[in-house]
Amino acid sequence: AFSSEQLARLKREFNENRYLTERRRQQLSSELGLNEAQIKIWFQNKRA
């Protein structure tokens, strides 16, 4: 489960760009304390 802070950040990123570069995913992973797979799957689900 994502914290409300993490979700807000993911939604902001998604609004700016529906697709993440690998580098951006790595940055978000480290900033949010999530693993890259969690972020990747969140974006895939959000696009679906």
Score class of each variant (00 low, 15 high):
residue 18 R to C: 13
residue 37 A to H: 12
residue 25 R to H: 05
residue 16 E to S: 07
residue 3 S to F: 03
residue 18 R to G: 09
residue 6 Q to W: 03
residue 6 Q to N: 05
residue 36 E to Y: 04
residue 46 K to A: 15
residue 23 R to I: 14
residue 7 L to C: 14
residue 39 I to P: 00
residue 12 R to G: 05
residue 24 R to F: 05
residue 26 Q to E: 10
residue 28 L to K: 00
residue 13 E to D: 03
residue 26 Q to P: 01
residue 17 N to C: 14
residue 43 F to A: 00
residue 3 S to I: 02
residue 11 K to S: 14
residue 46 K to Y: 14
residue 45 N to F: 08
residue 14 F to G: 01
residue 22 E to D: 14
residue 42 W to N: 01
residue 13 E to W: 04
residue 47 R to S: 10
residue 19 Y to G: 05
residue 47 R to Q: 12
residue 13 E to Y: 05
residue 26 Q to S: 09
residue 42 W to C: 05
residue 47 R to D: 07
residue 10 L to T: 00
residue 24 R to N: 04
residue 10 L to E: 01
residue 44 Q to C: 10
residue 38 Q to Y: 08
residue 34 L to D: 00
residue 35 N to T: 15
residue 24 R to P: 01
residue 25 R to Y: 13
residue 30 S to R: 14
residue 9 R to Q: 06
residue 46 K to T: 15
residue 8 A to V: 07
residue 1 A to F: 12
residue 22 E to A: 14
residue 23 R to L: 12
residue 21 T to G: 09
residue 3 S to Y: 02
residue 25 R to P: 03
residue 42 W to R: 01
residue 43 F to E: 03
residue 39 I to H: 00
residue 28 L to N: 00
residue 1 A to H: 12
residue 1 A to W: 13
residue 29 S to G: 07
residue 16 E to C: 12
residue 4 S to T: 12
residue 31 E to A: 06
residue 36 E to D: 07
residue 16 E to D: 09
residue 18 R to L: 03
residue 10 L to P: 00
residue 41 I to D: 15
residue 39 I to R: 00
residue 26 Q to A: 11
residue 25 R to I: 15
residue 25 R to Q: 13
residue 13 E to M: 04
residue 46 K to M: 15
residue 37 A to Q: 14
residue 26 Q to F: 07
residue 39 I to L: 08
residue 10 L to A: 01
residue 24 R to W: 04
residue 37 A to G: 08
residue 24 R to A: 08
residue 27 Q to C: 10
residue 17 N to Y: 06
residue 36 E to K: 05
residue 30 S to E: 14
residue 18 R to H: 11
residue 22 E to C: 08
residue 45 N to R: 09
residue 26 Q to W: 06
residue 39 I to E: 00
residue 16 E to G: 05
residue 26 Q to I: 09
residue 46 K to N: 12
residue 2 F to A: 03
residue 21 T to A: 04
residue 2 F to V: 06
residue 18 R to A: 12
residue 18 R to M: 10
residue 20 L to F: 03
residue 18 R to N: 11
residue 14 F to N: 01
residue 34 L to C: 05
residue 19 Y to H: 13
residue 5 E to S: 08
residue 21 T to W: 04
residue 36 E to C: 06
residue 36 E to N: 04
residue 41 I to A: 13
residue 48 A to I: 11
residue 29 S to L: 03
residue 39 I to K: 01
residue 47 R to V: 11
residue 21 T to M: 03
residue 30 S to Y: 13
residue 40 K to M: 15
residue 7 L to R: 06
residue 14 F to S: 01
residue 25 R to V: 15
residue 27 Q to V: 11
residue 23 R to W: 08
residue 21 T to I: 03
residue 28 L to D: 00
residue 15 N to F: 10
residue 47 R to A: 12
residue 22 E to F: 06
residue 46 K to F: 10
residue 17 N to V: 04
residue 36 E to R: 02
residue 37 A to L: 13
residue 9 R to M: 07
residue 37 A to E: 15
residue 37 A to D: 15
residue 42 W to V: 02
residue 2 F to W: 07
residue 23 R to M: 12
residue 42 W to Q: 01
residue 30 S to F: 14
residue 46 K to V: 10
residue 45 N to P: 02
residue 18 R to F: 05
residue 34 L to P: 00
residue 25 R to S: 15
residue 33 G to Q: 06
residue 3 S to Q: 04
residue 9 R to T: 07
residue 43 F to K: 00
residue 12 R to I: 12
residue 32 L to I: 08
residue 16 E to F: 06
